[in-house]
């Protein structure tokens, strides 16, 4: 059941560019990425798009379809009306290299800032043991494919370029939570790092990251809010604070 679809695609870079109109053939069962490829093959051989797996697993084809951050390869054409104009733009929170391809190095900078997994020093490598129930919370966050759609949709940086300096973003809050909840991570400063270096307090838990995550990771409920609560434990909880003074322990709680 083929038909001709109306497409509006961003052409240009970060200096100049705009939305251009095309009419492209669509066949049954196709996804938006197929249509972009058909555009390349038939009308615009120089249209730039980043992709790899076409299976929703590599996280390369992130863009915005009708204004919503999405994976091009996981957005079915059958979800649109046949006579609706479909707008495809690059992610609007990052600089554009060309057309649909953005420069996502902001995310790699933030990734490098997080202290790596630190195994306990008193257990020999090879002797590490952990129970499934202890590690399952961290495992949810390992599903992340680093598509950075959550980073793209987060208004803290999307709408405020200046916050990129002090805000790491949802993808790296789940990394912080993954390590802080990990039974074998020996570091105890993950909470203060999240607050002071990652800008956890800037997130206002409005859940857009959760809404767009193609891996359905419950970013806000399972990582951000638990991390905020953990920070409350160490920074704002007067009961804990008084207890610590009485017991003369450092304010940062260790692993329990």
């Amino acid at each position: 059941m083929g038909y001709k679809a109306k497409f509006r695609v961003y052409r240009g870079d970060g200096e100049q560019g705009g939305l251009e109109n095309y009419e492209v053939d669509v066949n049954e069962g196709e996804v938006v990425l197929d249509i972009i490829h058909r555009l390349q093959a038939t009308q615009t051989p120089d249209l730039a798009v980043r992709w790899n797996c076409k299976a929703g697993k590599c996280g390369s084809c992130s863009a915005e379809v009708n204004g919503k951050p999405r994976l091009l390869c996981m957005t079915r054409m059958s979800t649109f009306d046949e006579n609706e104009t479909i707008t495809v733009t690059p992610m609007r929170a990052f600089p554009v290299i060309r057309d649909l391809v953005t420069n996502v190095s902001f995310n790699y900078t933030k990734a490098r800032q997080i202290p790596a997994f630190a195994p306990p020093t008193d257990i020999k490598a090879g002797d590490y043991r952990m129970q499934q129930i202890d590690v399952e919370r961290s495992q949810e966050f390992r599903k992340c494919i680093e598509c950075f759609l959550c980073q793209d949709t987060c208004h803290v940086v999307r709408d405020h370029e200046e916050n990129k300096e002090s805000f790491a973003g949802p993808r790296f809050f789940i990394r912080a939570a993954e390590l802080d909840m990990h039974p074998l991570d020996a570091r105890t400063d993950r909470k203060s790092f999240a607050k002071a270096e990652q800008g956890l307090g800037m997130c206002n838990i409005t859940k857009c990251c959760t809404d767009v995550c193609p891996e359905h990771i419950k970013i806000t409920d399972n990582a951000i809010i638990p991390m905020k609560e953990r920070v409350v434990d160490t920074k704002y909880d007067p009961v804990v604070f008084i207890g610590k003074i009485l017991r003369r322990k450092p304010r940062e709680t260790g692993k329990i």
């Binding site: 307090g201 800037m202 206002n204």
Partner: peptide
């Protein structure tokens, strides 16, 4: 802040819950 996901918010500046008064949200417990 924001109106909806991927809809630009009208505010020029944003510091979320990192400063007074919204820092007080940490008292929820």
């Amino acid at each position: 802040s924001p109106t909806a996901c991927a809809v630009n918010e009208p505010h020029k500046k944003y510091s979320g819950e990192s400063r007074f008064p919204l820092l007080g949200q940490n008292s929820h417990r």
